[in-house]
Design a protein around this nucleic acid. Sequence first.
DNA 1: AGGCATTTTTGTCAAAGTGACAAGAAGGTA
DNA 2: TACCTTCTTGTCACTTTGACAAAAATGCCT
Lengths: 242, 242
Amino acid sequence: MTDDPWVPPVVLLAVDLVILTLRDSRLHVLLVRRGVDPYKDAFALPGGFLNHAGEDITAAAHRELSEETDLDVETLSLEQLGVYGDPGRDPRGRVVSVAYLAIAPSLPEPTAGTDAADAGWQPADHVLSGDLQLAFDHRRIIADGVERARVKLEHSALATAFCGPTFTITELQNVYEAVWGIRLDPRNFYRKVQKTEGFIVPAGTARKAVTGRPARLYRAGPRTVLYPPMIRPAPVSIEGGE
Amino acid sequence: MTDDPWVPPVVLLAVDLVILTLRDSRLHVLLVRRGVDPYKDAFALPGGFLNHAGEDITAAAHRELSEETDLDVETLSLEQLGVYGDPGRDPRGRVVSVAYLAIAPSLPEPTAGTDAADAGWQPADHVLSGDLQLAFDHRRIIADGVERARVKLEHSALATAFCGPTFTITELQNVYEAVWGIRLDPRNFYRKVQKTEGFIVPAGTARKAVTGRPARLYRAGPRTVLYPPMIRPAPVSIEGGE
DNA sequence: AGGCATTTTTGTCAAAGTGACAAGAAGGTA
DNA sequence: TACCTTCTTGTCACTTTGACAAAAATGCCT
C-alpha cells in the first residue's frame, strides 16, 4: 500500500429496464436479443450506458425506454428497483447498473430498436424458470422486479396500469391473478375493489360482452395508495422466508 | 457530435449509510460532521467511496459501517435503500451513491472514525424538520430510509432489531410508536404480537420492573415476514399520497 | 403492614372484514 | 324458448379490529 494521494475508483454506469405487461392473461417481460458481445445472441433486458457523464439516471432510463420500445413514456410509471453492481457481473469491466421497473398495458409486439437485434415479450414464468438463457444477472433483476410488482399490487393502484384507460372488474382481477399467480373468487374480489374507495370509478358505458352478461366499465380512481390493502392469500410458508 | 468510437462515461461510486436506532424512545440517525470540503463542518451520513474498483458494493457498505461506528456488523440487517445520482449533487464531479439502511439496538455514543471529525446520534424528527444543515442530498436519503423502516415494521420482524437480545412487549411497542410517530393501545398491541406466530418467543426469566408489574421477557422469533402484517393506523390522507 | 400508584396481563363486546357459497340478472346461442 | 355463460348482488359463519374494563404483580410511602 503506497502513500500516494488516493483517487477514488471509477465505474461504468448503466440502466436496465424491467418492463412488465399482461398478454393473454399471463405476465410477460420485454426482452431484447443482444447483437454484440458479451452474451451475444442471448436475451437481455433493454438498457444501456449513460449517454454522457452529466445525464440524469432516471432520464437515461426514460431514454432507453423510448429508444427500445414504442411505448408512451409519459404515462408509464417508472420506479427504481435497485442497484446491481457485483464485481464480475460484466466481463467488460466494473459496470454498475441501476434497474427500473415499468408497467405497461397490453400492447402489440414492439419494433426492434437500434441496439437490439430482436425484441419481444416473453412469458415471465418461462423466463424465471431458467429455460431461457439470460445475459448478466438479468434473471435476478427480473425476479426482483416481479416480486416488487407483486407487493405493489397489494398496496397501490398499480394494477390499473396494466389495463387500458377503461376496464372491467374481471379484467382487473385477471391482473391480480396473473401477477400473483393464484386464482381469486370473483364475487369477493368484486366486493373488495368496490368498497376500496377511490380505487376505481365507474366509466359511463357499460357494455363489453362476447358471451355472458355485459360487464360495467371502470377507470382508475384518484387513489394511488390502497388502504386497507388488497390481501394476497397466504404468501408465507410456515417458517416465513424473506 | 463526432463520430469517434463512443466510450461510455464513468462515474464515482460511493455508499451512504442510514443507521437508525432508538434512544430514549425516540428515533435517531447516526450522522458525522464532515472534516473536509465540500460541505465542511456540515452533518452528513457515514459513507465513502469504494476502496478499489473491484470492491463489492455491499462489502463497501459493511466496511464503512465498521470503520465509522463500533457496531457489531454481523448481527445488523443491512438493506439497499436506493441509488442517488443526480448530476450536481456533488460539486466534485459525477458521484453516484448507493444508500443502505441499517437498524441498530440502542447503543452508547459511537467513537469518531477517521474521516469524521465528529459522530453522534441525532433525533430523526429534528433532522427531517430541516433545522439541521445536511450535506449533499442526505436529508432526502434519510427521509427515504425512515419511510422504508416504517413500511418494514408493518411486514417484517424488523422491530426486534431495534431491541436487545431480550425485550418486553412494551419495549417492542415503544419501537413501533417511535418509528411510526403515533401511540398504540398496549392491550391491543399485546394481543396482536402474541397471536402473530413466530414473531416473538418467551425468554425464560420474566422480571424487568422499575415500577409496576414486572414484564415478561421475549426474544425475536424465527419468523421474518409477518403475516398478517402489523397495521399502521390510517396512514393515508383522503386523497392517498405517494 | 397497609394502602396507593404504576405497569403488565387477561378479558369483553360491538363493529368491520374475510372466505365460502347461493342465487338472481343480462346478455348470447342452439 | 331453453340453455349457457358471465356479471352482480346477497347471505352466513368466522376472524380480526378498536375501544374499554378489570384483575394481577410489583415498588413506594406513610
